[in-house]
């Protein structure tokens, strides 16, 4: 019977079914690691949106620049990887802060469409800048032995980085939630995100909060970029575009402005994408379309996302 076969394939690692069961396990691992990467990037979108009500179109390109920084740190300047990772994170955070200063801050009171155009312009600029500086040809991300090592589990060999990614994501998430919920600056962030005007009146230093938000979001994107590079070892100027769009969608799916929501959305998207390929291989060509269809469905049926709250416009 069909169901028997399916159950066997799922649960019994018998030799006959080893292929399907192990590949399922492989898919599962892939889904978790891709989901974690999406989650890390999605947090940046959700935090910025929560505070500025702005889609930071350039966030995906910040991620791309971080991958280049890592490439240069390890492959060109031959720094030991832990040092170069720290440098990459700091440099990316600075890039994020600069982006906000240059492209968003001057327009804070401008019509919303101007800010949106500025965000798109910044994204366009970073992509072109990367093409100009590093050429459009993909570069090979250096292999880091520690991550690239494989272990064999259930008959499948899996890279260590595959396990590493979700663990790192969870650690950073815990740190972030601590900062947001327990520290002073985190409290200010929540106040601004809840009610911008009131927070300003109450004397919260909005600029500092925003700078901090961009720094954290970009730093997390840098962590994501490093792990992305070890997992999909190719760096090129357009590499941030699709992950960027998908992670924004992840943030919307989880409920924009909500950090655990972004993580949840990231996992749903990463998992969904991998499972789509696993279960319906004929649709592999449409994998990038999956996220957008999910976006439309969410916006239609639950525009506030899974964990989001409703915001109504006053007349």
């Amino acid at each position: 019977m069909v169901s028997d076969i399916f159950i066997n394939a799922l649960f019994i690692p018998a030799t006959a079914d080893a292929v399907s069961s192990s590949s399922l396990w492989q898919y599962f691992a892939n889904g978790v690691s891709l989901g974690s990467l999406y989650a890390l990037i999605a947090i940046g979108y959700t935090m910025v949106y929560g505070i500025l009500r702005l889609i930071n179109f350039a966030h995906g390109d910040i991620f791309m620049m971080a991958a280049y920084f890592a490439f240069f740190g390890i492959a060109v300047f031959h720094l030991p990887w832990p040092i170069s990772f720290i440098l990459v994170i700091v440099a990316t955070a600075l890039l994020g802060i600069t982006l906000e200063r240059v492209a968003y801050r001057p327009l804070r009171d401008a019509p919303k469409n101007s800010i949106l155009i500025s965000a798109i312009g910044a994204s366009f600029f970073l992509e072109n800048l990367a093409t100009y500086l590093f050429s459009g040809k993909p570069k090979a991300f250096p292999e880091i032995a520690f991550f690239a090592d494989t272990v064999v589990i259930g008959g499948v060999s899996i890279q260590i980085v595959t396990f590493f990614i979700p663990v790192v994501t969870l650690i950073f998430l815990a740190v972030l939630l601590y900062i947001v919920n327990k520290t002073k600056v985190g409290m200010a962030m929540r106040a601004v995100s809840r009610d911008y005007e009131t927070a300003m009146v109450m004397g919260v230093d909005i600029n500092r909060v925003i700078t901090f938000t961009f720094a954290i979001g970009s730093a997390l994107a840098a962590v994501g970029a490093i792990m992305w590079g070890t997992r999909y070892p190719q760096v090129q100027p357009m590499m941030g575009v699709m992950p960027g769009l998908k992670c924004f969608i992840a943030a919307v799916v989880g409920g924009i402005g909500n950090i655990p929501g972004a993580v949840l959305g990231g996992f749903i998207l990463g998992f969904g994408e991998i499972m789509l390929i696993a279960l319906l291989p004929s649709l592999t060509g449409y994998r990038d379309a999956f996220a957008f269809i999910l976006l439309i469905l969410i916006l239609l049926f639950r525009p506030t996302g899974i964990l989001g709250e409703k915001i109504a416009e006053k007349v």
Partner: peptide, 22 residues
Amino acid sequence: FRPGFRMVIFSLLLMIIVLFYR
């Protein structure tokens, strides 16, 4: 002057317009 310079200029142009000549 090398490949990509042209588009850097044009994307910069977009930014300059929206920032200074809205």
